[in-house]
Amino acid sequence: MKKNVGMIDKVVRIVIGVAILAAGVYYQNWWGLVGIIPLATAFTGSCGLYGLIGVSTCKTEKK
């Protein structure tokens, strides 16, 4: 897949993913596994939803 997640977006996704996972552990709830989604998109650098709607937060290089 094409990379469409920029650096600031990655940091935000990592923070949110870790927070959701931590809340799931704290409350001993399986819903905390939802935190894997933002972590996966941050580490792969691509977001399927962004691809569908044509959004990219990556910086473009000027030629």
Rank of each mutant, 00 (worst) to 15 (best):
M1K: 12
M1N: 13
M1L: 14
M1H: 14
K2C: 09
K2S: 14
K2Y: 13
K3T: 09
K3S: 10
K3P: 14
N4W: 06
V5H: 08
V5I: 15
G6D: 11
G6L: 02
G6E: 03
G6Q: 03
G6R: 00
M7N: 15
M7A: 14
M7P: 15
M7H: 15
M7G: 14
D9A: 10
D9Y: 04
D9M: 07
K10W: 05
K10C: 04
K10T: 08
V11Q: 02
V11H: 04
V12R: 01
V12A: 10
R13L: 11
R13F: 13
I14A: 00
I14L: 00
V15R: 02
I16E: 03
I16M: 05
G17P: 15
G17T: 15
V18I: 10
V18C: 00
V18Y: 00
V18F: 00
V18A: 00
A19Y: 11
I20T: 13
I20H: 04
L21I: 06
A22M: 14
A22N: 12
A22D: 06
A22P: 08
A23W: 08
G24K: 13
G24Q: 13
V25Y: 10
V25A: 12
V25N: 12
Y26Q: 11
Y27E: 15
Y27H: 14
Y27A: 14
Q28T: 08
Q28R: 06
Q28V: 12
N29G: 07
N29I: 11
N29V: 11
N29H: 13
N29L: 10
W30Q: 08
W31R: 12
G32V: 12
G32F: 06
L33V: 15
L33D: 13
L33K: 08
L33C: 09
G35R: 02
G35T: 10
I36S: 09
I36P: 11
I36T: 12
I36V: 15
I36H: 12
I37V: 14
I37A: 03
I37E: 04
I37P: 00
I37W: 02
P38C: 05
P38G: 06
L39K: 02
L39H: 05
A40K: 04
A40F: 09
A40C: 04
A42D: 01
A42T: 02
F43W: 11
T44Y: 11
T44R: 12
T44C: 08
T44N: 09
G45T: 05
G45A: 02
G45V: 02
G45C: 01
G45R: 00
S46F: 04
S46G: 03
S46R: 01
S46M: 03
C47F: 01
C47V: 03
C47S: 05
C47P: 08
G48A: 12
G48C: 04
L49N: 10
G51Q: 09
G51V: 06
G51P: 09
G51F: 03
L52R: 08
L52P: 05
I53P: 01
I53E: 02
I53W: 03
I53G: 01
I53C: 01
I53R: 01
G54M: 09
V55I: 12
V55C: 07
V55Y: 08
S56Y: 01
S56C: 05
S56G: 03
T57V: 04
T57Y: 02
T57W: 02
T60C: 05
T60Q: 11
T60M: 06
T60D: 07
T60W: 05
E61K: 00
E61P: 02
E61Q: 02
K62M: 08
K62D: 14
K62Y: 07
K63L: 05
K63T: 10
K63A: 10
K63Y: 05
